[in-house]
Structures are given as structure tokens and as C-alpha cells.
Design a protein around this nucleic acid. Structure first.
Length: 203
DNA sequence: GCAAGGATCTAA
DNA sequence: TAGATCCTTGCC
């Protein structure tokens, strides 16, 4: 395990094709759980491989909690691009959050990455480094400069398991005040890397 | 339990 | 242009 290389781990995965991001947002959010994110971190000049363990879907229609609900603005314009790019925004003036844009151009939908588990890194990260959307963005070094970059290039890149047998739970989303009834948060069941216990928010 | 923190959006 | 809001975190 300790001696595994990125290449060895990725044997059981395949790069997510563009079509992966064009599915319904809810589906993409669900299927991203268990996927790996390969990313390059400027800080320390290193590659990391992370397992996505928690996501939230933000829909293009009828979802008051979504940035896209009131239409296109300067901040959210990337959400309306074609799926497969990254939407980064700043929250509470302090933290950045990373979203994966979904569906086709003009829709305005995305999946928030909320928690990940470090699978491979050249230097050691504290266990909680990727637990929570703000910390995750900080550890990866993502800022507004990364808003709009593609996931279909070299890095960052999403890898989908060839056999996805992840046990996934749907719960209500965290930190929102509207459309709280929707079960659009997806967690890897039992994972200790999830930001808020998966039992919370169960219907 | 709650303040920090600043951009963003809406209403006027 | 003022005022409310905000997909959080770490500290009290």
C-alpha cells in the first residue's frame, strides 16, 4: 500500500470522458463518489491522488440553493458552460469551494466537492486536509484563478472506477437555507473522511 | 456556540 | 449604493 504508485492504483480506473459530465447533475454527483481526482499542487510541486467521498448536486432548475437559480451573473457564469470544467467561488470572504460543472452549455448546474481522502501524495497531508469544501480547496491550492479550467486535460483529471461498487448514501445538503428538503448530498457510507456524518441529514 | 471575513447580489 | 446573504472554518 505505501509503495503503490499512481499508475498502479489507476489500473482499476479510467479517465472520465466528456459524456460523464453530461449526465443529469444528480447522477454525476452520485457517480463522483468513489472516483479519484488527480491534481497537481503548486505548493511543493507535487502530484496528489484523492478519492472523492462526499459531493452535493446543485441543479439547473427549481433549486433555490443553487447559485444559478436567478440566472447567469458574473460570478456564476462558469456554471453555464458545458460540463467538464471547474467552477470555483469564494464563500464567506474566506474560503474557496470547488465545483464540477455538469450537463450541457446553458444549463447552469454543478456538483460541489465536499470531502476527499488522500490516496497518494509525495508528502504527508494531515488526515483532515481534504475534509470539508473549504479545506479541500485550500489544500489543493485552488483559487479563483482556477475558475473555468477543464477536467479533461492532463491535470486536474477525474478517474472513474471500472467497477464501481461504492456504497453511497443520499442525504440533505449542508449549510444551505433553501431547498433543504432535497436529498442531493452523496456520501461514501461509513467513510471517516466525510465532512459531516452521513447519518445527519437522512430522511 | 458564534464571529470573522469580503465578495456578490438585490432592491431602491 | 446600502443592506442582507453566504454551498465554512476554527476558535471561543
Amino acid at each position: 500500500m505505501e509503495n503503490e504508485t499512481i499508475e498502479n492504483i489507476l489500473v482499476n480506473f479510467k479517465p472520465a470522458p466528456l459524456s460523464f459530465f453530461r449526465q443529469s447533475t444528480e447522477n454525476v454527483a452520485k457517480e463522483l463518489v468513489g472516483c479519484l481526482l488527480l491534481s497537481f499542487i503548486k505548493e511543493g510541486n507535487q502530484k496528489v491522488l484523492l478519492r472523492i467521498v462526499e459531493t452535493e448536486a446543485y441543479l439547473s432548475y427549481g433549486d433555490e440553493a443553487s447559485h444559478s437559480f436567478r440566472g447567469i451573473t458574473k460570478r456564476n457564469q462558469i456554471m453555464f458552460k458545458e460540463g467538464g470544467v471547474i467552477y470555483v467561488y469564494k464563500i464567506y470572504g474566506i474560503h474557496h469551494c470547488i465545483n464540477v460543472v455538469t450537463e450541457i452549455e446553458g444549463k447552469g448546474s454543478a456538483v460541489l466537492l465536499r470531502a476527499m481522502e488522500c490516496v497518494f501524495a509525495e508528502t504527508v497531508f494531515p488526515k483532515d486536509s481534504f475534509r470539508g469544501p473549504g479545506k479541500l480547496a485550500k489544500s489543493l491550492g485552488f483559487t479563483l484563478e482556477d475558475n473555468g479550467i477543464t477536467l479533461c486535460g492532463e491535470t486536474p483529471k477525474i478517474f472513474v472506477p471500472k467497477i464501481n461498487d461504492s456504497k453511497i448514501r443520499a442525504t440533505s445538503r449542508i449549510g444551505i437555507s433553501k431547498s433543504t428538503e432535497k436529498l442531493l448530498r452523496f456520501c461514501l457510507e461509513g467513510s471517516s473522511y466525510v465532512s459531516v456524518d452521513w447519518k445527519k441529514g437522512m430522511a
